[in-house]
Design a protein around this nucleic acid. Sequence first.
DNA 1: GCCGTTTTCGGCCCGACTGTTTTCAGTCG
Length: 596
Amino acid sequence: MSFADCFYTGYEMPKLTDMTNREIAEVFEQVADLLEFEGANPFRVGAYRNGARKISDLPEPLSAIVDDEQRQLTDIDGIGKDLAEKIGTLLATGSLPMLAELLERIPSTVLALLRVPGLGPKKAAILYQELGVNSLEDLRNVCEAEQVRGLKGFGAKTEATILKGLAVAETALERMRWVEADAVVTELLDFLRQHAGIKQMEMAGSYRRGCETVGDLDVLVEAADASAVMDHFGNYPEIADVLACGDTKMSVRLAHGLQIDLRVVPSESFGAALQYFTGSKDHNVVVRGRAKQQGLKVNEWGVFREDAQEAETYLAGRTEEDVYAALGLPWFPPEVREAREEFDWASQGALPQLVELADIRGDLHMHTSASDGKASLTEMIEAARARGLQYIAITDHSQRVSMAGGLDGARLRAQWAEIDRIRKEFDDIVVLKGIECDILERGGMDLPDDVLAEADWVIASVHYGQRQSREQITERILGALENPHVDILAHPTGRLINRREPYAVDIDQVFVAASKHGKFLELNANPARLDLHDIHCAAAKRHGIPIVISTDAHSPAGLEVMRHGVQQARRGGITPADVANARSWEKFRGLLEQKY
DNA sequence: GCCGTTTTCGGCCCGACTGTTTTCAGTCG
């Protein structure tokens, strides 16, 4: 059927493309990079970057907004007439003429130059125009030939800085997972604390905001003698390179590539600096914009009233609470400082009371040595009880996961008989007879319905056929959600942070189906998974789907990761009421029986 | 390119540090 046929028969043309929000955001990011390289108006560049971020933060697909006649793309903050048109073009055709034109003028390979620390768009453009530098390899050659130092605005030191930066860019350092950064932080703070002059110390930046990955570390210190603190920091054995060292700031790179920025401030500025360096950048832009409207100025030193004759009066800065209060704002938990919804919540006086680790009463996903766990049933139960949990579910793998020794119906029923026996020994913890049942490649569940019907708790999950098409894998998962015995979908997108992309699943359809059939969705707390991620948590909440935060523990120590899941949930604005396993056993049982 | 309790033009957060500079541009967070 041709286009014309569709027109005349009224047949609805199928969508030509299926671009996801993320793919569209990536196009805008690339446009921003290329425009920046061309020396375009920085605010125009910023508009593309901001648009890209707003799109990737969106809890629903852009196509859903386009298809809805009641709504406009321009309703999205940061998306104006022009970007809305470009989104339309991308959804309709899968490509953007503007990007093609930019790529005709600038080879995309030059963008690699921007990854070199110390090299921004201006210097990179000069290198490209004057010396024809087109890749990291070219860059190394011209530096080693000492051609760079002759350029206007460059010198021998810049050349040396670029050579150092090249080593960083060539290793393409990826952002560290939060849990790995946490290990570095523990050691670092232990070392810094040895200095007696430190009165107060806090981590800031993306680490404090609990981001799933961390690009660098920001340490904030209150001390009277800044240079003494920096001297002490300079002796930290892991330091490979000192990048900068001034009166109040010192930047270093550790041997494995991680950058650490240390700031030393006086007591009256500690809160302001903590607010400032915690970010996010976008959150701070909004904070400063608000200050400006009120005739105030905010920087890392405090909140100031701008008086006549360029004089300034210090208003606040000792604590973060003071800083926000001076601007008429509540204190925001660091996890929500992303310029997403937090300012709307504040203006409505409805900042959510975010879930905390202490709210968690149950853990509904864990393995034993019956499949690929490291500990026995009794050991897992005892470990959960020692953590004060009221209820748990034992959920070993099903038979399809042969590598993990998955259980068939007979072995599973034997395990349940053992649970029945053991239950009598533990009267202070409820142990549910569960299973993590695979969703088969061809669709359908890995165990027969009569087995699943006997379970207290059925987790459905995908382990095989992860690379299936969007249609195939979505169909499989929707099929599982329609099964009356299934209670929850585990690790709904299958992603492994920095290691494996999510399945191609249409997650929006999963939300709709989960809500329709009264199924829970898991936030898998394993720090390599954190699946659902923060935006998806917020989306699930919008759909009214209770989230279950689970450790997927394979040993008693594995129960420890619950805190990572809670942190991720907080980033999604999740409260105890949104988390099924933050309820008492009685209330959780009610939720389960009624399919919420 | 976006936006509006300075609303259709003229703004757009703010400061530290470095290197190549003779007063500042570039980069970074």
